[in-house]
Write a protein that binds this DNA or RNA. Sequence first.
DNA 1: GGATGTTTTCTAAGCGCATAGAAATCTCCG
DNA 2: CGGAGATTTCTATGCGCTTAGAAAACATCC
Lengths: 364, 364
Amino acid sequence: MVKGPTVYDVAELAGVSIATVSFTFRQPHRVRQSTREAVLAAAQALNYLPSGNARGLARGRTGALGIYSFDFYFLDDPASAGGAGTRAAAPAGSDPNADYRVFPLYVDEVQRGVALECWRRGYTLMVGGGNRTTGRTAIADIAGQVDGLAVFPRTVPVEVLSLISRRIPVVELSEPSHDDSLHHVTVDNAAGMHALTTHLITAHGLRDLQFAAPRDPWSDFQLRFRGFQAALAEAGLPVPERPVTEGDGAPQSAEALAAALLAGGRLPDGIVCAHDEYALPLIDALLRRGVDVPGRVAVTGFDGIVAGRLQRPQLTTVRQPMEQMGRTAAAILIDGFEDRTLPPQSRQLPVEVVLRESCGCPPA
Amino acid sequence: MVKGPTVYDVAELAGVSIATVSFTFRQPHRVRQSTREAVLAAAQALNYLPSGNARGLARGRTGALGIYSFDFYFLDDPASAGGAGTRAAAPAGSDPNADYRVFPLYVDEVQRGVALECWRRGYTLMVGGGNRTTGRTAIADIAGQVDGLAVFPRTVPVEVLSLISRRIPVVELSEPSHDDSLHHVTVDNAAGMHALTTHLITAHGLRDLQFAAPRDPWSDFQLRFRGFQAALAEAGLPVPERPVTEGDGAPQSAEALAAALLAGGRLPDGIVCAHDEYALPLIDALLRRGVDVPGRVAVTGFDGIVAGRLQRPQLTTVRQPMEQMGRTAAAILIDGFEDRTLPPQSRQLPVEVVLRESCGCPPA
DNA sequence: GGATGTTTTCTAAGCGCATAGAAATCTCCG
DNA sequence: CGGAGATTTCTATGCGCTTAGAAAACATCC
């Protein structure tokens, strides 16, 4: 566990040069059978393990892709940090689905897609994320060790990304192309939300709809809002000028929104949420206040995360092809790395409306 | 995207030596403010991005942990491979929960724990898995690039692991210690299965129980079987000598098992499965044949994967603290790397019986 | 001003492997 | 047996960065 043997050691023991040792592993056909065996025997005897870093440095490639995620600070639970302790049992009466509210989320499923494609093509995947605690932005560390990088939007400043993209291909996940040097994989946010909204209007006869979203003007959310507006306009219904928000619009603020809507006596027929992570706690909050969902008010989401199926009522949503997005991203990166002349790709994938209970449809 | 600038370029532009450039990034306090700014400006101007490989090589550490998973061959779906295509819509009438049968599974949740702990401690995570298609065993590639390695049992020959463990700490997940040089993180398989079996006997009055497991004598499964046997023995009930199996015991063979049990007219009161992944398709198979679960026969699992909650009836199981296992593994690796004198750790975590519908308990 | 102590910067030597291109060895035939 | 050609092995260098230890620059004080 200290400092392993190197090619030099193996070469010496086998009585050959280091080049021959290297060839034995990289281009076996160029080495005579007998010497190959000798080298392998020596390697075996010494417990030789090649250094990936040295190889990567010498060859100019690493065989790994990277993915950079959000800062998980909101998931950090010092109590369950690795080490001796065991996580304390959940407090009695706590939501038994609580676990699934934090995993797997949207990013996890996309990441899985990337992992699968990496696996198919013989690459490994390096995972990292922002960390406001340690203060380190691992992005550069990762970028320096991979042949391609997938990033979720708004996790890394654009300048940094375009800097990195001069060295290795970079694909941005779920953000429309900014006409820059990055690759993009997106979904049809507007069309999906349009279809969902139209369903609420035509199938359930809802007239008074509101769109709930974080204040944060994430462009994906904006596009969804546009789709929402368009559907209302087409149906000749009044079109809200902006989403309703309370607090910062983070999932935790769904509670505040529910309270505000009830207090203001302006509860609509339906609340179309910018994403599932907001819809789920909102439903909780409404139910807790005695508001029937979907009886009194329908609530819908966007993304199609697992927790939406565990919710009661089950969440009506628009499902993104998350795994496929990840696979596509990885494929673009690998192709882009292997053929440096490829221009920036921008691929948009279709979404699918998933009708479940929370809009008034029958259970699945 | 071709070949980026190096420390040499930055040094030249800033009018200093490469050492100063390096210091500017690694030990800023050792560089005069003015020169530091000059270097940073030069780096900025050149779009300098440090090479992780070179750094890893020079420093003898990479700041990354690795995790090696199973071969995902059974998940490979050429149709959805990255690239132009989009996955075809699921065939009509297919199980709407099918997606959740493959993700997230046990390994995914453990891996997430590792990722979280890595994130906490400022490490990145490198993910890889066997791949019988490309034939490459990526294990050595990964091992050469990380400071510590977590592996799932039976994914890598023990010799290889102990070889690797001479260089970097290695922790084996969910396998009892073999008294070797590896670290281990396990759970109390026997106790968990014992508790579950006892529940079936005392709470539901079941007398005729069978244990269904893959033929593959994975030691975790064996320990669970022992717990099962012990519980029966203590209750004075007949103790099966071996698990029942049909085919190879893979999840797909649950169908065959159901058929065989029915054909043989030897359907027990309860079928205790070695893990959830087997219990779920078994329940499907039984229901499809008109057997009431849990009315006619109770079925239980082990692991506590997400799909068990989506199953109808919901699956009674023994939940492993998967995230915690991952965090613990990562913590061991990091500690072990930072202090090479630490002896092999072996940590066992408790499990929890989760009573749901498939054993006859009321829904959650 | 010069001696002494501190900072700051530089020189030089790796880290472990890959791979051109040269050198050595082997094969095959006339 | 000699030599052309093919095969195998070696020499030499570079990949980009870190970091001792030396050198230089600066600060302080008598």
